[in-house]
Every structure is written in C-alpha cells, then in structure tokens.
Write a protein that binds this DNA or RNA. Structure first.
Lengths: 197, 197
DNA sequence: GAACAAGTAGACCATTCGGTATATTTCCAC
DNA sequence: GTGGAAATATACCGAATGGTCTACTTGTTC
C-alpha cells in the first residue's frame, strides 16, 4: 500500500506534467501543488527521473484498467470491442483539458529513439512498453473478431489511434476525430470482408 | 539574404533540438556547436524563444518545398500524388536519425493546446500552421484526384501521417509503416470508389 | 512514557539557465 | 589608411535547477 503522501505527489506531478510537460515542471512546483515536504519526495522517489517514471507507470496501469473495463462493458461482440476502443479514444480526446498522449510527449522529451548503446532512457522505455501493450491488445481484439491479418489491422488502428491524439494535441479538431473513427471502421470492415472470402 | 552566422546558428539549433528536444538544449550548446559568439545569437534572434520559432519556421518552409517537389516529380496523376506523399513519409521515417515530427514535439513541450486567453505560444502557433498547411495540401490533392469528400479523406490521411511519425518516434517499426501506407491506399481507393458511384 | 518511523520546514549546495554589458578584434568599403 | 559595422571573448547578473542535510514535530505501537 503506497503512502498517502506518495499518492499526493503522484497526483500533483501527473497533473503538472500533463499540463506543462516534464522538463518544464520543477520539483518545487510539484512539492507546492502536493503540499508535501521536499525531503518526503526524495525519500519516496530517489530523483525527479524516478518520479517521472513512476507517473508514467501509474498512468499506463490505470489506462489499461480503465480502457479494458470500458471496452468490455460497452460491447459484447469482438467486432464491437474494436469499435469501442475508438469510442474510448473519443471520450479522452474530447475532454477539454486533453493533454495529448503523455507517453508520446515523454518520448519527445527524453532522448533519441535510436541510441548508440541499448541503454534507452527509462521514461522512453515506459512509453515503448505502453505502445507495445496497446498494439498487442488491438491484435488480440482483431484476432477475436476474426479479421484477416489481425496484426496488420492492429498496427493500422494503432497508427490511427496515435495520429488522432497527436493531431488533437496540436489543435483539437472534431472533424478529424470523426474522420479517423470512420477510417477505423472502414479498415475493420475491410479486414472482416477479406477474411470472409 | 540571411547572415552566414545566422544560418550556422539555425543549423546547429535545428540539429540539437531534433536530437534532444527544445527545453533540454541550452543556449550554450547551440553556441558551441555553431561556433558562434553569445552576443551574435542575441543580435540575430532576440531570445531563445525566437530562435526556436525561427527553426520551426525554416523547417516548415523547407518541408513544404522539399515534399511538394518530390511529390510533383514522382507522380503525374492526381491519384499518384496522394500515394507519393506517403512515399515521402517513408523516406523520412526510415532515416536512421528520424527525430519524429518536430512540430508535434514543439507542441508537446510548449503550453497547453487550449489556453484560457487566445495567446497561444508562438512555437505552438508554428506547429498549428504547419499542420493546417499539410491538411489543406492533402485536401487539394484529394480534390484533384476526384475523390468523394476530399476534406474527410485528407483528415484521415493526415491522421495516418501523424500517427506514423508518432509511432516511429517512440519506437521505429517497419511493419507499422507498411501497414499505415497500405491503409492510406485503401482509404484513397474507397474515396475514389465512392465518387464513381 | 519511550521508542520509532514518517513527515515537516527550511537552510544550503553547486550548477546551470537565459540574458546583458563591456571591451576588443576582424574585415571590408571608401 | 580610416571609419564603421559585425563578430569576437568573457565577465557578469539574478533566478531557478535538482539534490542534500540538519533539526524539529508528529502519530503510532509496544
């Protein structure tokens, strides 16, 4: 069971990072927002870097739980579940303070994607893990729906998914959101049609 | 004609920003990399912020020139030009040091997408302008190709475009790139088929 | 009530940041 | 040659950074 102070630190950091980015937020801001002493932060997390990673990992865990629960509750058929993923995306993106994909933003701030050594930044590693999980989940759903080439469809839907968030983060655009969801439907249908041949 | 030193500063800043992000790069690094005196930078650009914006604007201008030239040379038909846009994307993304979409990264680092007042950060404004231009260009190409609902197709292709870069920035994935380009082809064909009815 | 872990405030550290000021040097046009 | 613009090096500024340390106050549990 995590300490109450630890939770408050994570809450404050998550909100601040989502609003202003990671590098732009100082430790002091997090402390003030959380109402927690400096020492406590450095006892709970060894460094700012560890705090960032902890925020990303909690975000990842919560996103998985929330989204899978939503999708499983919203739809009963495998095909409906694929659609529901994008309904969940719509809910996120349409929120007035939608921060974009925090994992993409972390990857944008922390180090190059291809490093010389294999020592990629831990924050980037969290982003990679998140992305991989989403891809795998979509692959599973596509497979259950019985489409032709589930992996390919999953990658296409994942790209639409990421693109929608990237687009909304630059400038929210309802038409683009609708169009992307329509595109997802078309791709799913095409995959089902190909399997029916 | 821009001063030689100004160009060297833009070159160095562009490379450093692409590799490490904007906030993570200090003025001093830019100066050292460019081999230019501190004073000169602040005479050419009033502040770091202005330097960032100048880098983004030059990047935007060059991208337009390079990509339109590539597309116009590569294809003769309107339909072929739409496809060629994604061939250009492939060339970019497959480059070993592909930094992701620098405009998306700028938007990620600078300020929330929805501000209370209408005073959005100038770096974000550059990103918005770039995104809008790409959308409009795709709309024009889709219109010339004679598809049904050119704007909708343009938004869909734009989302695939952004998603591909976002995906590659987190972790390069050749299969995802191929799948996204296939998806683009399918969407274009569907738009043409709908128009033929 | 004493031990003990957890949290507090706040001083302190070296470093770096973006930005300014000064004084000097380079170089080309006239 | 000489004037003047452009670029140079470098010292300096205040502020903020991430992180450490000490000393004090809780609250809980034997």
């Amino acid at each position: 069971m995590p300490s109450a102070k630890r939770t408050e630190l994570l809450d404050a950091a998550e909100q601040l990072f989502a609003t202003h980015g990671f590098g732009a937020v100082g430790i002091q801001q997090v402390l003030q927002e959380a109402g927690v002493a400096r020492r406590t932060l450095y006892l709970q997390f060894g460094s700012k870097q560890d705090l960032v990673v902890a925020v990303l990992e909690r975000l990842d865990r919560r996103w998985r739980e929330r989204t899978t629960a939503y999708v499983n509750q919203e739809a009963t058929t495998a095909r409906g579940r694929l659609t529901a993923v994008f309904a969940a995306l719509r809910d996120d993106v349409e929120r007035p303070d939608f921060p974009g994909c925090v994992f993409a933003r972390a990857a944008a701030e922390y180090g190059p994607a291809r490093s010389r050594g294999d020592d990629l930044h831990p924050a980037r590693a969290a982003a990679v893990a998140h992305q991989a999980w989403v891809r795998d989940w979509l692959t599973r759903l596509a497979d259950e729906a019985g489409v032709d080439q589930p992996r390919t469809l999953a990658l296409q839907l994942g790209t639409l998914f990421d693109g929608t968030m990237a687009c909304a983060q630059v400038k929210p655009c309802p038409q683009a959101l609708d169009a992307a969801i329509d595109a997802a439907e078309m791709l799913i249908d095409a995959g089902l049609a190909a399997a029916a041949l």
